[in-house]
């Protein structure tokens, strides 16, 4: 294989791996927003708490930082999901019974606090140095096989999460959830414990986001406080879900891959331009993503794959 061919292959693998991780994030948000109508403006917080959990548990010892557990990936990803779900549960416990604007503000707050912890607590998170030395499974195979192996891991996780949320959505639990979203009072009148259902959906969605954070930490083999920045997680995932079609899991996945391809291919273009142009175009790209969100909201309210009425 020539060098150029291998470059393209690695690019495609990276696009699909990160697209898959975004699809998992979008599925988590769809569980919260699409199914339960709960607004989460702090995706970055749940994402980062999962990423740091996995990175701390999965790396060999480093002087001056908690860690050295060196646990295998399946354990760390599960722990990451559990930890983020616990944070989601705690936030939800406080705010779920309030109207959703308050929940949105509270999620911004928790994301901000997690950001402060990541930046300030060097003994835990490595501070601004971050955490390096995260080893992916299949890394021993060398590129591109290691990347193919990791893509398989990501897509495997995506399929598992998809099956889980689809089954949850079709179950009596999912029907109750949508009933609560569409008419809270009617559901309550039928004897459903509205707050308990919402709390479950919020915690599950947060857990899925934490798992996606763990996958990202392994993907980059390195984790820095940038993981807590909202642009690449909170904002982008919202655009993905709204564009793809909230309430529809396939829409969420499609939206994630489409928007990520759009986002990352424009980076390919801007990367070839002179440096000062490239920086400006990077911001223009964010502006256009924001505009895309507005256009979808106004013209295609349901997204590309709108929610279908279920029997």
């Amino acid at each position: 294989m020539t060098g150029e061919m291998q470059g393209y292959l690695l690019y495609a693998l990276s696009l699909l791996s990160l697209g898959g991780i975004y699809a998992i994030l979008a599925l988590g948000l769809n569980l919260q927003w699409g199914m339960a109508g709960l607004f989460n403006a702090g995706i970055a917080g749940f994402f980062a708490s999962g990423a740091y959990t996995a990175a701390i548990l999965g790396t060999p010892p480093v002087a001056g930082r908690l860690g050295g557990f060196d646990l295998p990936m399946p354990v760390t990803v599960a722990a990451a999901a559990l930890f983020s779900a616990a944070i989601g549960w705690a936030v939800g416990r406080l705010c779920i019974r309030l109207r959703t604007d308050y929940l949105a503000i509270a999620t911004i707050g928790i994301a901000e606090i997690l950001r402060l912890i990541v930046r300030n607590e060097g003994w835990l998170t490595g501070g601004s140095l971050g955490i390096s030395g995260i080893v992916r499974p299949f890394d021993g195979l060398g590129p591109p096989r290691a990347d193919i192996g990791y893509l398989a891991v990501v897509l495997g996780c995506l399929v598992l999460v998809y099956i889980f949320v689809e089954r949850a959505g079709r179950s009596p639990w999912g029907r109750t959830m949508r009933a609560i979203r569409d008419d809270e009072r009617a559901a309550a009148a039928l004897g459903k414990d509205v707050d308990a259902f919402r709390l479950q959906a919020f915690a599950l969605g947060s857990g899925i986001m934490g798992g996606a954070g763990a996958l990202t930490a392994y993907y980059f083999r390195f984790l820095s406080p940038d993981a807590t920045e909202p642009l690449l997680t909170t904002f982008l995932v919202w655009v993905m879900l709204i564009a793809g079609g909230s309430g529809n899991n396939r829409g969420a996945i499609l939206g994630a891959f489409l928007v990520w391809t759009l986002w990352s291919s424009t980076e390919l273009v801007t990367g070839r331009l002179p440096a000062d142009w490239a920086a400006n175009l990077a911001y223009l790209r964010v502006l256009l993503i924001g505009l895309l969100l507005q256009v979808v909201l106004q013209r295609f309210a349901g997204g590309i794959l709108p929610e279908r009425a279920r029997r």
Binding site: D101, R285, V286, L287, I289, Q294
Partner: peptide
């Protein structure tokens, strides 16, 4: 009204990137 909240989320992104630009 929650749709307005989402729209304002997008506007926040647009304003900031316009300022950076």
């Amino acid at each position: 009204t929650i749709v307005l909240l989402i729209a304002s989320f997008g506007v926040a992104l647009m304003l900031r990137s316009a300022i950076q630009l």
